[in-house]
Write a protein that binds this DNA or RNA. Structure first.
Length: 514
RNA sequence: GCGGUAAUAGCUCAGUUGGCAGAGCGGAAGCUUCCCAAGCUUCAGGUCGUGGGUUCGAACCCCAUUUACCGCUCCA
């Protein structure tokens, strides 16, 4: 475990040192849980996005993409449930330093009154045996009536406070009913505070006419509200999917573990619309397809597992996570959810617009069911980095740090290196780059010894190094040096493009998915 | 958000009792060099996270703040 934490620290340093990930606003002491991608990070991230996007839109003729705006009508977040769900009233106990959801504390108190009533009933039932009249007992026993009255009064006050979003009342209820902290047993409570997990801003330049809008906490809703637009203009027939890549924002209370949990992050989501009743078989199918997409990267099947949800969210009737073994344990990278017709129906209700599909085969209209696949780009980035980071001890006892990135994802595809920086070798190297730069991200380096240059490329995951020596000027051949094996191969210059094109193509990954 | 710990060069870190700001690695320029971090020369980089305070004097002590890590807590 200590070794793994060590690895994680090294990974974070490596990301910084080699231009993959920087803390945001670093010269101003940083901004909590916000990170920037550097010159190599952005290439890797773009390649990950392309791998996902093409796997959705090229491999599936019934999946199309959109790019919806980050700002959306505020009512969308009422329809989606985020306005309610992202507003938990929290209260701290000053003695135990524990934090609780105020509404949960009160609900537990209501449950306690119920318990008391049930216990009285049990006791009486035992005592009176067959002669026990439950209805009679409930309506006459003084202890039952007292608890029943308290329960109802509490329930009424609680409902009113919740409805009014009155945080002071919530706290007063906790004090009045003498609710204690389960840990410390004291009633030494802080104020009730609300943590809005959505970022809000104002749209409209004048203060009185301004409308409160949110930065989207997920990209999915942009797909749902465009369902009809895409279905009609694209002449889409169910089943079909809509894919989207974009930024989302959450005001996380605890944002930690590097880019694993950020306040501004990027999602790749695909919502797949199906006939009601067929959703679970599609759910199973997408589960399998998505797992293949991960495993095709070749990091090892043992690094992945499903985590099926037992407790389902209010909108789902099946849900699973694809977890990846990060340096800090198995963590969720992707979620696959069967969302039923919750979202589209909710938007029907809130917008007053009919959102249905006429199915010519069934000769009827319905609100489609939805299978969602949702993957965090940044988490995927972290999983790729941690799976690729490698410290190898070589034969001579030296250690080399090498990023064994899949060639298709590598930020730099090849480095072109003149063995020495004279005798026309640099010029030859430049000429080779000029012929390859339209197809591949190339890097030129003539500084330091050849070995040192190889190691520099290893550290950023460049899969191929092309070395120009004196013979090159005569025989027009170069050496290709492979990152992972460090083996070398002599090939003619005309063949380089073909060799590398084949090895960096995403086709090789996609072929493993079918 | 609470509690604890920490912050010194791009990275990893040292810095004695409060008394001149340091090392290794890395980077840049030059020389050398025909294949895996070789060698030599030179150079750049720091308001010691930030802001106050104590002191003749603060990287070091005190207060506040920011950021990160660990533990709580939360996670539609």
């Amino acid at each position: 475990m200590a070794q793994q934490e060590d690895l994680f620290k090294k990974l974070v340093s490596h990301c910084k040192e080699y231009g993959f990930v920087f803390p945001s606003s670093e010269i101003y002491d940083g901004l909590g849980a916000v990170y920037d991608y550097g010159q190599n990070g952005v290439e890797l991230k773009n390649n990950i996005k392309k791998y996902w996007w093409d796997s959705m839109t090229l491999l599936n003729e019934n999946v199309v993409g959109i790019d919806s705006a980050i700002f959306m009508h505020p009512t969308i977040w009422k329809a989606s449930g985020h306005v309610d769900a992202f507003n938990d009233p929290l209260i701290d106990n000053k003695d135990s330093k524990k934090r609780y959801r105020a509404d949960v504390l009160i609900e537990e108190q209501i449950a306690r009154y119920e318990d008391k009533i049930n216990k009285e009933v049990e006791k009486a039932a035992k005592k009176f045996g067959d002669a026990f009249d439950k209805a009679q007992f409930l309506s006459t026993n003084p202890r039952v009536l007292e608890n029943q009255a308290k329960k109802e009064e509490l329930h009424t006050r609680f409902a009113k406070a919740l409805n009014d979003s009155n945080l002071e009342d919530l706290r007063q209820i906790i004090l009045d009913y003498e609710i204690v902290c389960p840990i410390s047993g004291t009633r030494n409570w802080t104020e009730v505070r609300q943590f809005n997990l959505m970022f809000a801003t104002e749209m409209g330049s004048t203060s009185d006419g301004a409308m409160k809008v949110y930065l989207r906490p997920e990209t999915a809703q942009g797909i749902f509200v465009n369902f009809l637009n895409v279905q009609k203009t694209g002449r889409m027939k169910i089943p079909f999917g809509i894919a989207q890549i974009g930024k989302a924002f959450r005001n996380e209370i605890v944002a930690r573990q590097f880019i694993f949990r950020m306040r501004e992050f990027e999602q790749m989501e695909m919502q797949f619309f199906v006939r009601p009743g067929e959703e679970l078989s599609w759910f199973a199918q997408w589960k399998e397809t998505r797992m293949k997409w991960h495993k095709a990267l070749g990091f090892g099947d043992h690094k992945y597992r499903f985590h099926d949800h037992e407790k389902l969210a209010h909108y789902a009737n099946a849900a699973t996570d694809i977890e990846f073994e990060m340096p800090f344990g198995f963590k969720e990278v992707e979620g696959i959810h069967s969302r039923t017709d919750f979202d589209l129906s909710s938007h029907e209700k809130f917008s007053g617009k009919k959102i249905q599909y006429f199915d010519p085969e069934l000769n009827s209209s319905y609100v489609p069911y939805v299978i969602e696949t949702s993957i965090g780009v940044d988490r995927m980035f972290l999983s790729v980095m941690s799976a690729s980071y490698c410290e190898e001890v070589l034969n001579d006892g030296e250690t080399r740090v090498v990023l064994k990135l899949p060639a298709a994802l590598a930020p730099i595809k090849l480095a072109v290196l003149p063995l020495v920086k004279k005798d026309g070798l640099p010029e030859k190297a430049r000429a080779i780059i000029d012929s390859l730069k339209f197809d591949f991200n190339c890097q030129y380096d003539e500084k330091d010894s050849i070995g040192k240059r190889y190691r520099r490329q290893d550290a950023i995951g460049t899969p191929f190094c092309i070395t120009i020596d004196h013979d090159t000027l005569n025989d027009n051949c170069v050496t290709i040096r492979y990152r992972d094996t460090m083996e070398q191969e002599r090939v003619s210059i005309e063949k380089i493009s073909g060799i590398i094109a084949d090895k960096v193509s995403m086709k090789n990954l996609f072929k493993q998915m079918v």
